[in-house]
C-alpha cells in the first residue's frame, strides 16, 4: 500500500503550515519524514489520517482517503504526539475499547502488548506508566489491527536508549515484511540507521525527497580524529587541501577519507587517539531544512 500526498496544503489563518506538499511513500521500506520542529510534519500526518481537513490537495492510502477506508485500523496504524490515555484506565482496557470498536479479534490487545514488550503491564493503570511505557502503549495501539501501513509521529520521543534501539529493530522488521513505514522525526540520528528513504520538510515545503544512500553519497565522507596535537595536525591538513568541518577541544572533523589522513599524521609522527569515518548527513539535513539550501 502506497501513501500518496498530492499538493497537500494547510493554512491556519494566515500561516501556511503545509505548502503544496507532494510525495509518494511506498511499501517495504522505512521512509523518514524529517524536518525541524514546526516544519509541518505533524499537520501533514494529521491530514493523512483525516484528523485535520486539508485546505487544498489530497492525501490517500492505496488510493483512498483515510475516511474512505472500510476498516481503518486493519489498514493503517498511527501513533501521534497528542494521542493520550485516560490515566485511570488500564493498558488492556484502553486497547480493548479500540479493538472492540474496530471489530478486531478478542486477543488483539494482549498480542499487541506482548509485541511492544508490555505483556506484564496489562493490568496497572496508565497513570503508573513511565513516558517510555506510554510510548510503547501508543505503539501497541498503532499495531493493534496488524495494519500494512504505519504512520508514526516522533515515535522515539520519550524512549530510553534501549527503547530506541528496540524501536529501530521493530520498524526495520515491519518494513522487511513488506509494510509501509512512515516515521517523522526532527532528529536525524534517531532514524539514520534504519531509514531507506528520506522526505525533508522545512517551513511546510518539501525540500528533498531521495534515498538515504544517495543523500549519504552526496554528503561525502568526513573523517573525525582525536589528537593531543590538534593545532599542528589542523595546519598540516589545511595545507594539504582538506577542509575543516568541525573543531571541538581535541577533536577535529575534516572532509576526506580516514586512510589518507592516518597516513599523513603518521608521516609527521603525530599521535592519533582516535580516527573514525563519519557522514556529512547531519550537515545536509541542517542546510536543507534551514530553508536556504534547496
Amino acid at each position: 500500500m502506497t501513501i500518496e500526498l498530492r499538493g497537500l496544503t494547510k493554512r491556519f489563518g494566515s500561516t501556511v503550515a503545509v505548502d503544496d506538499l507532494s510525495a509518494s511513500i511506498g511499501p517495504g521500506s522505512v521512509t523518514a519524514f524529517l524536518g525541524p520542529n514546526g516544519a509541518g510534519k505533524t499537520t501533514t500526518l494529521r491530514m493523512l489520517l483525516g484528523l485535520v481537513a486539508p485546505t487544498a490537495g489530497t492525501a490517500t492510502i492505496d488510493g483512498k482517503r483515510y475516511c474512505e477506508l472500510a476498516e481503518p485500523l486493519r489498514e493503517v496504524g498511527a501513533l501521534l504526539e497528542a494521542s493520550g490515555f485516560h490515566p485511570g484506565r488500564t493498558a488492556i482496557d484502553h486497547l480493548l475499547g479500540l479493538a472492540v470498536a474496530a471489530r478486531l479479534p478478542p486477543d488483539a490487545p494482549i498480542r499487541a502488548l506482548a509485541e511492544v514488550g508490555l505483556a506484564t503491564d496489562a493490568k496497572p493503570k496508565v497513570s503508573a506508566f513511565s513516558l517510555g511505557m506510554r510510548r510503547r502503549l501508543g505503539l501497541a495501539a498503532a499495531i493493534l489491527g496488524e495494519p500494512r501501513v504505519l504512520v508514526l509521529d516522533e515515535p522515539a520521543n520519550g524512549l530510553d536508549p534501549q527503547g530506541i534501539r528496540w524501536l529501530r529493530g521493530y520498524l526495520r522488521e515491519l518494513a522487511d515484511n513488506g509494510r509501509t513505514v512512515f516515521v517523522s522525526s526532527h532528529v536525524l540520528a534517531e532514524i539514520e540507521q534504519i531509514a531507506d528513504k528520506v522526505l525533508m520538510i522545512a517551513s511546510g515545503r518539501l525540500v528533498r525527497s531521495s534515498g538515504l544512500a544517495e543523500l549519504r553519497a552526496e554528503a561525502g565522507v568526513l573523517t573525525g580524529m582525536r589528537t593531543p596535537e590538534i593545532n599542528r595536525l589542523r595546519a598540516l591538513l589545511e595545507a594539504a587541501g582538506y577542509r575543516v568541518r568541525g573543531v571541538a577541544q581535541d577533536e577535529l572533523v575534516v572532509d576526506g577519507r580516514p586512510e589518507a589522513i592516518g597516513e599523513l599524521a603518521a608521516a609527521h609522527q603525530i599521535v592519533l587517539h582516535r580516527l573514525f569515518e563519519t557522514g556529512g548527513l547531519e550537515d545536509v539535513f541542517i542546510r536543507l531544512t534551514r530553508g536556504d539550501g534547496s
Partner: peptide, 18 residues
C-alpha cells in the same frame, strides 16, 4: 470532554473517521 482532555479523541476518531 475527557476524550479531548486526555487526548484519547485522536484514537477514537482514528477507529471511526466518520
Amino acid at each position: 470532554t475527557q476524550e479531548f482532555r486526555f487526548g484519547t479523541a485522536t484514537a477514537t476518531f482514528l477507529v471511526a473517521p466518520d
